[in-house]
Amino acid sequence: MSLASVRAFFAEKAPDIAIIAQAASTATVAEAAATLGVAPARIAKTLSIRVDGQPMLIVTRGDSRLDNRKTKAAFGNRPRMLGAEDVEALTGHPPGGVCPFGLATAIPVYCDISLRAFDTVYPAAGARTASVCITPERMVALTGAAWVDVCTVPEPDDG
C-alpha cells in the first residue's frame, strides 16, 4: 500500500493533484518544512489516535498540539496515541508518511479547524519522502473528513 495506494487514490479522485516526491525526508514537521521550503505550520500532520477503542486520524497544522480537553469535549473521552504497528496496520502507511489518502481500512478522518488559516497545506502522501499540496477544503471533500476543534496553536510571536 503506502505510496502506491495514495497514487491510486489521487489517480481516481483527483488526477490534477501531483505527488511531490523528494530525495530528502519529510517524515517530521521540521524535515518536511525544510524540504518543501514552507513554514512548519503549513505542514498538515496526521495524528493517529484512539478514543474509547475507536481509531481515528486527526489532520492538523504542523505547529499545533492535540488538546486533551478539546478532544474529550468533541469525542467524549481522552485520546490515546496509536503505536507504530497499529498505525501501519490501520492506515497502510508508515509513521512519517501517514496521511488521510489511500487508507488500508475505513477509519474516521477529522481535520482540525486550525488548517483553515492557510490557502494550501502539505500533508504526507504515504511515504517518508512524499507529500502533496492541497487546499484544506479539498482535502476534507476528498477524504470525507469532518471539521473539529481539538488542537491548540502557539500564540503569535510579536517580538
Rank of each mutant, 00 (worst) to 15 (best):
G76L: 05
P40Q: 06
S2K: 13
F101G: 07
D63Y: 03
G126S: 02
L66W: 12
V6S: 06
C111I: 11
T105H: 15
I107N: 13
T28H: 04
R7F: 04
S48T: 06
H93G: 05
A32M: 08
L47G: 14
S25F: 00
R116I: 03
T46K: 11
L90S: 10
F101M: 04
D16I: 08
A39I: 03
L142H: 08
V51M: 13
S131V: 03
V51R: 12
D149L: 12
A117V: 11
P136A: 08
V140Y: 06
P136T: 08
S25C: 10
E85N: 15
G92T: 12
C151I: 03
D63I: 01
P108V: 04
E155S: 09
I20R: 14
A4C: 01
E155C: 05
R128K: 14
W147R: 14
I43S: 06
P94M: 09
A141P: 01
E88R: 11
E137H: 14
S64V: 04
P108C: 10
T35H: 09
F118T: 13
T71G: 13
I134D: 13
G83C: 12
A106I: 09
K13G: 02
T26K: 04
L115E: 05
L82A: 12
Q54H: 15
A30Y: 01
G96I: 00
A127Y: 02
E85L: 11
G83N: 13
A125P: 08
V98L: 05
E31Y: 01
P40D: 08
I19N: 07
F9S: 08
I58F: 14
E137T: 11
F9Y: 11
D158H: 11
A8N: 00
A32S: 08
G159D: 13
A11H: 04
R80T: 10
A74L: 02
A41D: 02
Q54T: 15
F75A: 13
A4V: 00
G96Y: 07
